[in-house]
């Protein structure tokens, strides 16, 4: 790519950008007033109200639990499905079929799954758990299958050579190779799920999102500010701890 091409591309991009002008809200002084009021006003985002910390902590804890259980469920199923989907451990038609199903599952967004599960089990944390679990099963199984496909054949042949059964091949050669990477993927998914769990409540699936939804509806910006800070702290902590564990694993 030479400079001319890059500038041409940039020019086209800016042109497309200009067509979104129609979405610009009307500018008037009132808008600016609202803006400053929401952000830095007495009841604004940057003036968080810490008196609701108990509510926020409860919501965050629930979000944490939703993410934890959802990830564990997904981990359990994806270990099975992932190995069934791997081309080197299962027959071709089975692996093809499972891979196709997993691809289909992955395209459904978590929020939509949450809405579907709320219909089934009613609003609350369990619906969120099911939504996260279902969606994560799709993504985790795919990654597990990829890990399984890349395992070293040597240890498998070694177990077979001493007369090991299929089960002992799995237990003593495949599993030890898959496990460290699998745990690392699982932790990574947990990091994603904790973010997802904090917004699932906005459609009624429990967790801090519920508290956030009510604060947003009531236009109570100082509460929104507190919740935002809470989410940032929890996500940062989880990212940090899980990052440390992951770098120890691999």
């Amino acid at each position: 790519m030479n400079n001319k091409k890059i500038f041409l591309l940039l020019f086209i991009f800016i042109l497309i950008g200009l067509t979104t002008n129609e979405y610009l809200p009307e500018t008037n002084n009132k808008g600016q007033e609202i803006f400053t009021k929401i952000l830095s006003g007495e009841n604004g985002l940057f003036n968080p109200d810490f008196s609701i910390y108990q509510n926020v902590a409860k919501g965050l804890l629930e979000s944490f639990q939703i993410a934890l259980i959802g990830t564990v469920f997904a981990g359990f199923f994806s270990l099975i499905l992932g190995i069934l989907a791997a081309e080197n451990t299962s027959p071709k038609p089975v692996s093809g079929f499972i891979k196709f199903t997993l691809n289909a599952i992955r395209t459904i967004p978590e929020i939509l799954l949450a809405i579907i599960f709320i219909v089934g089990v009613g609003p609350g944390a369990f619906a969120g758990i099911l939504a996260l679990g279902f969606h994560s099963t799709g993504t985790l199984s795919k990654l597990t299958a990829e890990v399984t496909e890349s395992i070293n054949k040597g240890p498998i042949e070694a177990v077979l050579a001493v007369g090991g059964s299929q089960i002992s091949v799995f237990r003593y050669s495949a599993l030890p190779q898959i496990m460290p990477e699998f745990v690392s993927i699982l932790l990574y998914r947990f990091e994603i799920n904790i973010r997802a769990a904090s917004v699932l409540g906005m459609v009624g699936a429990g967790g801090i999102g519920k508290t956030l939804f009510f604060a947003l509806m009531a236009r109570n910006w100082s509460h929104v500010g507190t919740i935002l800070i809470g989410i940032i702290i929890v996500v940062t902590l989880v990212d940090y701890i899980s990052g440390r564990i992951r770098s120890n694993l691999v």
């Binding site: 979405y23 929401i38 973010r195 904090s198 906005m202 989410i231 940032i232």
Partner: peptide
Amino acid sequence: RTIPDLLLAALCVALFGANPF
């Protein structure tokens, strides 16, 4: 990166109104 996209969107809708902007 800690702030989920849906949350950002909800905040922006509050700030700029319910439109694609």
